[in-house]
């Protein structure tokens, strides 16, 4: 089932002035329900702009966005509803925290939905569990938390709305490797448990390659390709041309393959590479490695 569909979507900045710029250029796209989609592209490729169209924050200059087959701009009064159904976590979301404690900040979205207190409480605790926030932290001031915890609190604030589609714009930007791993793992867990559609915008090929099923590659406001993650990494050369590097391990395996070691074209995790290389040497030396 298709949950989100963009049809001939175009977005221009500063139309009619000398600064006119087409950020999104006639994009056609279908996102399947329940998919975990990675979105990559170099700076200025239109990733973030496209994401802000999906929850109706930006109005397309032309073209349409359909959520479950319904044009989201057909009825302006329902736009707020669309924002609850398509949750968007912005870049550096910790800068939008404002409440006196974390609990109330996470509850901001659900209470805007008009839910009752019991339901809000349930959702806040659920979202806090997904993001690994402790009960104690829930009643601290959001400004007293560490950077990584603030980020989690902000992400939980969107998860608590239980959106059908969760979009995260660079959720790991500016975090240390440990923090990145943890947050990505939590998002993956959220996807598996709730089964909802997740879109993850990132600069890092390493990040998206390990967690996503499908990959949307953007270049200069257009869709460069949209395919299964392992298919995308087969075109390392094309990706390099638009300024994107495949994960390091994929590059190493490609070099090895050129030297005659028969490895798969779509290796993008170290574990898989190790498995295949060991397998190769085992078969070569008759099994005693």
């Amino acid at each position: 089932m298709i949950i989100l569909r963009a049809e001939e979507l175009t977005y221009q900045y500063s139309t009619g002035t000398p600064f006119e710029k087409t950020a999104i250029d006639h994009v056609n796209l279908e996102i399947e329900e329940g998919a975990f989609v990675g979105v990559i592209g170099s700076t200025g490729s239109g990733k973030s702009t496209l994401m802000q169209h999906f929850n109706g924050l930006l109005k397309p200059s032309s073209g349409h966005i359909y959520l479950n087959g319904q044009d989201i701009w057909a009825d302006k009064n329902k736009l707020r509803d669309v924002r609850f159904r398509v949750g968007l976590v912005f870049q550096y979301p910790e800068y939008q925290l404002f409440e006196e404690n974390v609990y109330r900040d996470i509850a901001f979205g659900p209470s805007n939905m008009g839910l009752n207190d019991a339901e809000i409480k349930l959702r806040v605790y659920e979202a806090a569990a997904f993001t690994g926030l402790t009960e104690e932290q829930l009643f601290q001031s959001p400004f007293a938390l560490s950077g990584g915890q603030k980020r989690r609190a902000a992400i939980a604030g969107v998860m608590a709305m239980k959106p059908e589609v969760l979009i995260l714009d660079e959720p790991t930007a500016g975090l240390d490797p440990m923090g990145r791993e943890e947050i990505l793992a939590e998002i993956k867990k959220y996807h598996q448990k709730t089964g909802c559609t997740v879109m993850l915008v990132s600069h890092s090929m390493e990040d998206v390659s390990r967690y996503t099923d499908k990959l949307l590659v953007m270049d200069k406001g257009k869709i460069f390709c949209y395919a299964d993650t392992n298919e995308v990494f087969k075109c390392a050369d094309e990706l390099a041309r638009i300024g994107l590097a495949v994960p390091e391990i994929t590059r190493i395996c490609n070099s090895l393959r050129k030297k005659g070691i028969p490895l798969d074209e779509s290796i993008y995790t170290v574990d898989e590479a190790v498995r295949q290389i060991v397998h190769y040497y085992k078969s070569k030396s008759g099994g005693d490695v």
Binding site: L57, Q96, V158
Partner: peptide
């Protein structure tokens, strides 16, 4: 910040003065 709070359903389009003032808090504090 306005965009981020709108994404969480903050209402900036209400015409009531009280609601308008309330909607400012999530923007002004950050």
């Amino acid at each position: 910040i306005i965009a981020a709070q709108k994404a969480r359903g903050a209402g900036f389009d209400s015409s009531k003065l009280r609601d308008k003032a309330k909607a400012l808090v999530p923007v002004l504090i950050p």
